[in-house]
């Protein structure tokens, strides 16, 4: 009788455990997802995918460049989120809370990540080191009032209209294009220049889309962005124009022989995806999701590229 009760009790415990398992699993998944999204780790993965895309387009051998870019992106964006934690509290409270809660760990991880990235870049030679240091220098320049030799309270580049987006787009385009090139010790060709312009335009678009979400916060702290200056509707038109221009650039590159048609297809697929996302700018309430969707354009390109190469 006692044994039966015990078994019955055990059965209840097991049932409770099984019942709790999905909750626990869901909680762990949520924590992992938050860590991935809020810490900028997902951006590091996207950046690594972009380096793979560049390496394939430029026909470069595998190098540590993807790892260097991933670590650098994680470090720079984690630092950026730490610096903007207070202003993000209005536009992105979940991320701001996560960053504040893990401030110390995030800063130490970002520092170590950047240290490892710089060390690995030394293997790629002086150019690779310079390129890896560039985003770090830009970050200091971009996010703080401290300008070497300025000696005064110079206006933050982040606050100047278009300069903020251009600096970000340039840093990304230079890193994504020239770092794999430096590691492979390859020469600059017409295809290289095409890749550079392509990524500059893509990053420009993807940097301005989140600004639609932050328009109120940016206006409050005096940061000039496209949506702040031109309004949301005109921003959508401008970004659509940039997408179409990029598509024209891809077609021109194929015509000029800088790009094979098979490699142009994934890029055009990504642009089609981007046009779709851009069409929702100002028309879709969940602007944060829209910004994330825009950042995932490179994953679409990566997936299409894998399919294209496999075919």
């Amino acid at each position: 009788m006692e044994r039966k009760q015990l078994l019955s009790h055990d059965g209840k415990t097991l049932a409770a455990l099984y019942g709790a398992l999905p909750v626990s699993l869901r909680s762990s998944t949520n924590r992992f997802r938050n860590a991935l999204m809020y810490s900028s780790a997902y951006l590091a993965l996207i950046a690594m995918a972009e380096v793979v895309v560049v390496s394939v387009i430029l026909d470069l051998p595998p190098t540590p460049a993807a790892l260097v870019v991933g670590l650098t992106v994680f470090a720079i964006y984690a630092n950026d989120r730490l610096a903007d934690a207070d202003t993000d509290a209005l536009s992105n409270p979940g991320q701001a809370a996560f960053v504040r809660r893990h401030r110390e760990v995030l800063y130490v991880l970002a520092s170590i990540a950047y240290g490892v990235a710089v060390a690995l870049s030394v293997l790629g030679g002086p150019l690779a080191l310079g390129i890896t240091l560039l985003p770090g220098v830009c970050w200091v320049w971009y996010a703080t009032d401290w300008i070497p030799g300025g000696g005064g309270h110079a206006r933050r580049l982040k606050d100047v209209f278009l300069v903020n987006t251009i600096v970000v787009a340039l840093a990304w385009a230079v890193t994504l294009t020239f770092l794999p090139l430096a590691f492979a010790d390859a020469a600059v060709t017409g295809t290289t220049l095409f890749v550079f312009v392509y990524f500059f335009l893509r990053v420009f678009t993807n940097t301005e889309i989140p600004n639609v979400r932050d328009v109120e916060g940016d206006r409050a702290i005096g940061v000039s962005t496209l949506p702040v200056v031109f309004g949301v509707d005109r921003t959508r038109h401008i970004l659509t124009g940039i997408d179409l221009s990029t598509a024209g650039l891809v077609i021109a590159a194929v015509s000029a022989g800088y790009l094979t048609p098979i490699l142009a297809v994934p890029l055009l697929a990504g642009l089609t995806y981007s046009l779709g996302v851009t069409a929702f700018v100002g028309r879709y309430e969940n602007e944060r999701l829209l910004a994330r969707a825009a950042e995932c354009e490179y994953l679409v390109v990566f997936a299409a590229l894998v399919v294209a190469v496999a075919v």
């Binding site: 520092s111 950047y114 240290g115 710089v118 060390a119 030394v122």
Partner: peptide, 13 residues
Amino acid sequence: LVTVAIGTAAALL
């Protein structure tokens, strides 16, 4: 390389 990695991380901190 370890020197560079540790030195850079410590400099950032």
